[in-house]
Nucleic acid binder design. Structure first.
Lengths: 124, 124
DNA sequence: CGTTACTATATGCAATATGCAGATAGCAGG
DNA sequence: CCTGCTATCTGCATATTGCATATAGTAACG
């Protein structure tokens, strides 16, 4: 538990774009995995970029960490759906991710400028 | 080989911030792994964020894919150093990464704006 | 009724990535 | 001799991911 969560803290720092996109969607409104997969295209995830299994497993992981919760929705047409909603913890995590993403963008801008010669790198 | 490289292509799309930082540094001037580790702090990587083994293994991977090449430098004081230099392939890869990073920044900006209420998400 | 297709969720397996710990080794200072 | 810093590398356990596959409901076609 403890070491598990500590590890999570570290990894939290490393990108986690898919989690951020999923949390953003679920924060906007409750929805199920298959719909999330479709909507991920809004964030540049083409079907060949993410496997559906990755989406489902990310959802399970987020639920295990209480970032989201699910309920089953009986469907009269087609199979039933597991509907996800964001939790208070999830909202906080999302906010953290967004803050961290801003810092990452600073670094990315720095890297772009360096590589385009708009900035110098002095090593001392 | 083939499936290996195809897989690489996919993963290429997924962040690879550490590779970009390392290639940027090695593109600037030849240097060894331990120095790279220190200089990574310029890109926000604090010592607790990256393990030295990850740096060395990333360097090995990059060399296996001909993005960089290494030579041993005899050191009169302290242990010898493996000095890395970027290759033409590596420079092209770096340029690709930078281009892709620009696109990712667009998405990140979109996510930030969405989460700060500066933008709406209409799902249809 | 059998087949195909689309929606929807889930798992097994293999490959890859990563942190942690430790091995090896040179050099310097006490 | 021991400690500490520099420098590179490997073993192990765990995490993540893509691919393939299983399961299952509905609908359309012949």
């Amino acid at each position: 538990m403890c070491s598990h969560d500590e590890a999570r803290q570290k990894r939290h720092k490393k990108e986690r774009m898919l989690e951020i996109c999923i949390l953003t969607l679920v924060n906007h409104e409750m929805m199920h995995g298959y719909r999330i997969l479709e909507l991920l295209q809004r964030f540049g995830y083409q079907p060949e970029d993410v496997d559906i299994s990755t989406v489902y497993r990310t959802l399970h992981r987020l639920e295990n960490h209480d970032r989201i919760i699910s309920t089953w929705e009986d469907s009269s047409l087609g199979p039933n759906k597991r509907i996800y909603a964001i939790t208070e913890t999830g909202r906080r995590m999302l906010a953290d991710h967004i803050e961290h993403m801003k810092q990452r963008m600073q670094v990315m801008k720095q890297l772009i400028d360096l590589n385009e010669g708009k900035m110098r790198l002095d090593l001392d």
